[in-house]
């Protein structure tokens, strides 16, 4: 009767095993530093242009929307603090992670999926290399290092977007905007804003690797794995965001 649950439960079990094995292997040699640096370049530097654009325009939109509501109460000067808190706590981590999921979970799944269907993963194993060490670990480390950095950059660029609206349309002074934004942020906000992308980085890289390594059925299978990786990682990002936010709000 519950046969339909077998497949998803098995997938979750395999995902947990893969993640546990990768984390357990983090300190184990060999460390493929060249692959780690290459992945940091692909994931971090490669995602930078789109993260800059998304961050900047998010800041603009947020400042415009907030200023409208704040005008009602004559509190336009609070635009800086509100943009800062919203960006650092929520929008920065989530938007950057969604962009990274679309770009990197897809990239990882399609690359590993292609390697799987062309027997390159089997060849790697036959040639004495553990695919988890060579393929999964570098992607996990690179994403965990680069995503918080990208988020910090997106936050700053978003604040610049808000500042652009503040001085050009809302008649705020630079001091008013930046002092308000700086004072509004507490250590707790920054911690939350960096912890979230770190956790989402684990999700994005592991989901990409999981679907890539489990690809079956040729090029069609690669396409399916790529789609599944993007959809799953985005759903997980939003679900985890709700849980983490609840935890931070409670304490």
């Amino acid at each position: 009767m519950l046969d339909f649950l077998k497949s998803p439960v098995l997938a979750v079990q395999e995902f947990v095993f893969l993640t546990a094995r990768t984390i357990r292997n983090l300190p184990v040699r060999p460390h493929y530093w060249r692959d780690i640096l290459m992945q940091m370049d692909i994931i971090g530097v490669g995602s930078l242009p789109i993260v800059l654009l998304v961050g900047f325009f998010s800041g603009i939109v947020m400042a415009l929307q907030m200023s409208r509501a704040l005008q009602t109460y004559g509190a336009v000067s609070q635009t800086g603090p509100i943009v800062a808190i919203t960006l650092v706590r929520e929008m920065g981590p989530v938007l950057t992670s969604v962009v990274a999921a679309g770009r990197n979970a897809a990239g990882i799944a399609s690359e590993l999926g292609s390697m799987k269907v062309t027997e390159q993963i089997d060849a790697m194993r036959a040639l004495g290399t553990d695919p988890i060490q060579k393929l999964v670990k570098p992607r996990l480390i690179a994403t965990c290092v680069m995503l918080p950095c990208l988020t910090a950059i997106a936050d700053f660029v978003g604040l610049l977007g808000g500042y652009f609206i503040g001085i050009s349309l809302l008649n705020l002074t630079s001091a008013e905007y930046w002092t308000g934004a700086y004072r509004a942020l507490e250590y707790d906000d920054v911690a939350q804003g960096l912890l979230k992308p770190f956790i989402y980085a684990i999700v994005i890289s592991m989901v990409g690797c999981f679907y890539g390594l489990n690809t079956r059925g040729g090029t069609q299978g690669v396409g399916l794995a790529t789609t599944q990786a993007v959809v799953s990682s985005i759903v997980w990002i939003f679900a985890l965001n709700a849980i983490i936010t609840k935890i931070f709000v409670s304490f």
Binding site: M115, T118, E119, Q120, A123, M124, A126, G128
Partner: peptide, 19 residues
Amino acid sequence: QFDLRARVGMLFQESALFD
């Protein structure tokens, strides 16, 4: 098994060269 596999050479069906 890696040390044992080092004593075996394998040609895969589609060569499986790393792209």
